[in-house]
Amino acid sequence: MPEKLDIDSLVQEGPFERDEVVRMIDSVVRKVSISGIDNEGAGIVSDIQELGQIIEQMRRDIGRSGVGDIKDKHIPTATDELDAVVGSTEDATGAIMDACEAIQGFVSESGGAVSDKIDAEVIKIFEACSFQDITGQRISKVVGTLKEIEAKVAVILDALGGAIPASSEGAGDATATDSEADLLNGPQMPGEGVSQSDVDKLLSDFD
């Protein structure tokens, strides 16, 4: 008789890592194969083998879907981009307010009815600049949500085992169109990319 599998104790021990589940299935199949089985047992073994194949297929599908990239690439990139949005709008707002203060200085020196009107309009610009505070707070909330998603994806990946294949498998199949699309990355992050003088130098090297 094959060694009886203690299902109850296994259930109490769970949950299991993916590799452990595969190992258990293999173990059951091996033991049943060695001990010999009747028709009913053969059906069970077949079901278990199919289950193992489903798990492996699921693992490959998840790998192809690029779920690992969500944690490792997409979310970190998105949060960096959003931080850059906050930084660049803050700089732009600062520049607008610099100009406004300069205008206020000029009109206070000149005086008169027109100056008062200009001053009133400048105040409206100042008021409008508070958009930067609101958008900054909204973006911070989005960044927080993205980080929560990142953490949850990490938990799912851990549960499925660390050996999920990366989506870059088969990257050699990339077409020329894909390569051109890869060139469209939008504005570079601060410190990345090259300066105009670098571009000029690079182009001059082609001459």
């Binding site: 803050e90 600062g94 105040i123 100042f126 600049c129 508070s130 930067q132 505070d133 900054g136």
Partner: peptide
């Protein structure tokens, strides 16, 4: 904590 807002409020108070 947002220096832009400090600047806006300070300017409006000045006005």
């Amino acid at each position: 904590d947002y220096k832009t807002m400090l600047r806006i409020i300070k300017n409006l108070l000045g006005q």
